[in-house]
Design a protein around this nucleic acid. Structure first.
Lengths: 228, 228
DNA sequence: ACGCCGGCTGAACGAGTGGTTAGCATGGTG
DNA sequence: CACCATGCTAACCACTCGTTCAGCCGGCGT
C-alpha cells in the first residue's frame, strides 16, 4: 500500500520539484522519441529509478496525462503572452519558431502524430482561434468572406498544421535543438506560396467554384444562409 | 541452416501465394493497427505460425520492405490507370476515395505518420506529379503562375496530404471499411473552402505579399528568374 | 516402398515493456 | 536517543516483442 498523492502539503518542496523534474524530462523524452519511449529511459534522463516515476505518477498513462496538462497550460500562457499581430497564422508561427517553446512544440507534434486527446484539444483550440481571427479580418475588410466560415477556418488550420507535421515527419531533425531552426526554415519555405495563394488565388476562372455551387444545393454553412 | 529464398523456381506456385498472402495480410494489419503490430498478429490473420513469416521474409524490417514495395507498385498501377481529369488534386482524390484502394490508402497513411522511406517516396511522387500538372494548368491559362512553381507544388501537396492525415489522426475510423467513407466525407468538407481559396483567394489587399517580395531580395525560384 | 527434402511449426530465448513490492537510508520529531 | 514516516531503489513479476532452432510431416523422386 503505497501512499497516494492525495495531499501534497506533507512534502512541500522537494517532492514537487522531483515530480516537475520527472514530468519535464518525460515531456522532452516523449517529444524526442515519441510516446513509445520507456519509463526506464525517462527515469534515466533524470537519474532516478524507474520505480520513482511510477511512484509519483502511478502509471505511464497518468504520467502522459500530467505531461498533456502541463503542455496545454504552457500553450495557454504562450498564447496569452503572444499578442496576435498582423498575419493569418500569427500565433502558430510565433509558437513554432520561438526557441523557448521548442520542447513543447515537439511534444505537440508528437501528440498530433499520435492523435491523443491533447491533439484534439490543441487542434480545436487552433481552429477556434483561427475562426475568431478570420472573422475579425473579414469584418475589417482584410479577408474575403467565405460561404462557410467555420469550414474555412477548419480547412486552413488543418492544412497549416498538417503541412507542418508532415514536413517534420518526412525529414525529422535529430534533436530538439534543431527543431526551431527547422520550423523557421519551414515557414520560410511556405511563406511565398502561402502569400501568393492567399492574395492571387490559384485558378484563373470561376468555373469550378460556380459548378460546385450549382451542383450542391446549398453549402452547409450555418452562418451564411443566403449567398451568390 | 534454413533454406534461403534465393531461387523461387523450386516452389513455383504455393510458395508465391503463401508469401503474397502473408504480405497482403501484413499490409492490412499494418494499415489497421500501425507498424507496431506484432508478427504474431499478422501470422494469426493468415492462420500460420509466426515463424513462417520470418521464414519467408527474414525479419520484420524485410517484411515491411516487401509491403512497401508492393504498395508502391500498386500505387503506380493505380496512377497509370487513373486518367487525370480536370481539377487540381485529381489523382489524390481518386486514389483516396476509391473503394478498392482503401487498404493501400490506409497503409500509405500509416506510413506517412511513421515517416519511413515509403512516405518520402510517396510524397515526392505526389509533389512531382503536382508540379507537372500545375505546370500544364499554368500553360493552359487555367492557373495563376507562381514565382516559384516547385515551392508552390510542394506547399500544395504537403497541405493537402497533411490535412488529410491530420484529419484522420484526430478522428480515426475503427476499421478500414469506413476509411473510404471517411475520405469521401473529408473531401466533401474541404471542397468548398478549397475552391473558394483557389478562385477567390483569402486576402483583399496585396500589401502582405508585396511587403514580403520587397523584403526578400528575390524568391528562391530557379525557373522564374525575373519577376515583378 | 523408401528416403529425402523442404515447407512449416512448437517451443524456447533474450531483450525490453509497464507495473509491484519489500526494504534501505535519512531526517525530522517525540 | 528511539522512533517513525518518507523519498527512493533494487529486485522481481508477468507479459510481449522479434528471432532462432530442432524437428515434424507430407509429397516427390528414385
Amino acid at each position: 500500500m503505497v501512499c497516494m498523492r492525495s495531499d501534497k502539503r506533507s512534502v512541500p518542496l522537494s517532492d514537487l520539484t522531483a515530480r516537475a523534474r520527472i514530468r519535464d524530462a518525460a515531456i522532452e523524452r516523449f517529444a524526442r522519441d515519441g510516446f513509445g519511449a520507456g519509463l526506464r529511459t525517462v527515469a534515466g534522463d533524470v537519474g532516478v529509478s524507474p520505480a520513482l516515476v511510477l511512484h509519483h505518477f502511478g502509471s505511464k498513462d497518468r504520467l502522459r496525462q500530467a505531461c498533456d496538462e502541463h503542455v496545454l497550460a504552457q500553450i495557454r500562457t504562450a498564447k496569452s503572452e503572444s499578442i496576435v499581430d498582423a498575419g493569418t497564422r500569427s500565433f502558430l508561427e510565433h509558437f513554432a519558431t520561438a526557441e523557448r517553446y521548442s520542447t513543447i512544440l515537439g511534444y505537440v507534434l508528437r501528440s498530433l502524430l499520435d492523435g491523443g486527446p491533447l491533439a484534439r484539444a490543441f487542434v480545436q483550440h487552433m481552429i477556434d482561434d483561427a475562426e475568431q481571427y478570420v472573422g475579425a479580418a473579414v469584418s475589417a475588410g482584410l479577408a474575403v468572406p467565405s460561404r462557410d466560415e467555420r469550414a474555412r477556418s477548419r480547412y486552413l488550420t488543418l492544412s497549416a498544421l498538417g503541412a507542418m507535421m508532415l514536413s517534420i515527419t518526412l525529414d525529422p531533425p535529430e534533436d530538439l535543438s534543431n527543431l526551431t531552426g527547422f520550423m523557421r526554415r519551414f515557414f520560410a519555405e511556405i511563406t511565398l506560396p502561402t502569400l501568393e495563394l492567399y492574395t492571387e488565388g490559384f485558378l484563373t476562372t470561376r468555373r469550378m467554384l460556380d459548378d460546385y455551387l450549382l451542383y450542391v444545393g446549398d453549402p452547409p454553412g450555418e452562418n451564411a444562409a443566403q449567398h451568390s
